[in-house]
């Protein structure tokens, strides 16, 4: 299987997971016309545990892929910066490190996880546009996580996809990347659901 066919297969086999995360009540609220600064801050907090843990525990497995420019892909500090600007308390790295050690043991598994996190930079642009429309100047300069790569979003995505496509041309890695991407979608979905549940409780 060539790189293009693999990426098509990856897209198609993760389509349902992608759809589920968009249908998550927290995502729906974020993209609704009723979204508030508080909703947005809680959304950031719900992602932080995963993004931080992934960068800390899984990124090191990709250290030999210099082309990825891993340090430029770290985004958890942007979440904290946005929360500070929003005058919200810092997010907590609330996920068990063993969870990351268990699920991201190989480069293929980490690439599958990165497919989801890097793909979210594309969605981040859309969310940013929506928030700017609904919340206006109140969020100006407070969406650095959503706008992570700003004008470089397209090129960062292409670099990642090229490497991912090449990795997926061997059959053993192909399945592992896809499984890991599906699993990562599920974990992020759970992060959003649980944080939403506990946020409602706090209120």
């Amino acid at each position: 299987m060539d790189a293009t066919s693999f990426l098509q297969q990856l897209r198609s086999q993760t389509a349902r997971s992608h759809q589920l995360i968009e249908q998550n009540v927290s995502s729906q609220l974020l993209m609704s016309k009723h979204v508030t600064i508080t909703h947005y801050a809680h959304y950031l907090k719900s992602l932080y545990g995963f993004v931080y843990g992934f960068e800390k525990m899984a990124f090191p497995l990709l250290k030999d892929y210099e082309v990825l420019q891993l340090d430029d892909r770290r985004k958890s500090h942007l979440i904290q910066a946005d929360l500070t600007m929003l005058h919200h308390t810092a997010a907590e790295p609330y996920l068990n490190e063993e969870l990351f050690n268990t699920h991201y043991q190989t480069t293929a598994a980490v690439l599958g996880g990165m497919y989801v996190l890097e793909g979210s930079t594309l969605g981040g642009q859309i969310i940013n546009k929506h928030l700017a429309t609904v919340l206006g100047h109140a969020i100006a300069g407070k969406t650095t996580y959503l706008m992570a790569y700003a004008g470089k979003t397209g090129s960062m995505w292409k670099i990642f996809l090229q490497l991912l496509g090449e990795a997926g041309t061997t059959i053993d890695k192909r399945d592992e990347i896809i499984d890991s991407a599906v699993h990562t979608f599920a974990l992020l979905n759970t992060c959003l659901e649980i944080k939403y549940q506990f946020t409602e409780y706090e209120n």
Binding site: G49, L187, T190, C191, I194, Q197, F198
Partner: peptide, 25 residues
């Protein structure tokens, strides 16, 4: 919150079709 997350993550991993409801108290 962390225990609730682990519970849901583990159940979803073991049996994808199970509906999991979390109540925070």
């Amino acid at each position: 919150e962390e225990d609730a997350f682990l519970f849901k993550a583990v159940i979803s991993e073991l049996k994808k079709d199970i509906i999991v409801t979390i109540a925070a108290d």
